[in-house]
């Protein structure tokens, strides 16, 4: 069963950013699937790495748009990115060190983590960037 399903409430109105959010959802769902199938530690490790690296990638592309168009809340948003990425890295490190198990608690954390990122902060730039992109 998927840990998180895409729904229109997640859309920020920019197709390519929506696509990235869908891929992040897919990575979290793959982690849930790996838990369900009792997958090997190597597979879990690779999914975690993918989630961490793609989060980093996604933030870099968003931040380039902020800089290009002078998004007024850029500093605050970049700080949120730093914190969000730090949370995933911390979780990954704790799991690698054997201090955390990947179970329903971790999956719930990741689902909330992504929901907070999309609904809590990305929705805030939506209108600004849509207008900026239209005007080129």
């Amino acid at each position: 069963m998927a840990a998180l399903e895409w729904s229109d409430e997640f859309s920020v109105g920019i197709d390519l950013i929506d696509k990235q959010h869908k891929l992040l959802i897919r990575a979290i769902n793959l982690l849930a699937m790996a838990v369900e199938h009792n997958s090997s530690r190597d597979i879990m490790k690779e999914i975690f790495r993918t989630l961490r690296d793609y989060t980093d990638t996604h933030f870099a592309y968003e931040e380039l748009l902020f800089d290009r168009f002078g998004y007024p809340d850029s500093v605050k948003h970049k700080l949120q990115h730093k914190n969000l990425l730090g949370q995933v890295i911390d979780l990954e490190q704790r799991w690698l060190a054997g201090d955390a198990e990947i179970g329903s608690e971790v999956l719930t954390f990741l689902v909330e983590w992504l929901r907070n990122h999309i609904l809590g902060s990305d929705k805030a730039y939506s209108a600004f960037l849509i207008t900026a992109l239209k005007n080129g």
Binding site: L16, L23, T57
Partner: peptide, 21 residues
């Protein structure tokens, strides 16, 4: 750039999914 990166990641996720199930 973003499109190409997304293609690569999607293909990587497909591979991971196949390795799980």
């Amino acid at each position: 750039s973003l499109n190409r990166c997304n293609e690569i990641v999607e293909s990587h996720l497909d591979d991971l999914e196949r390795s799980i199930a």
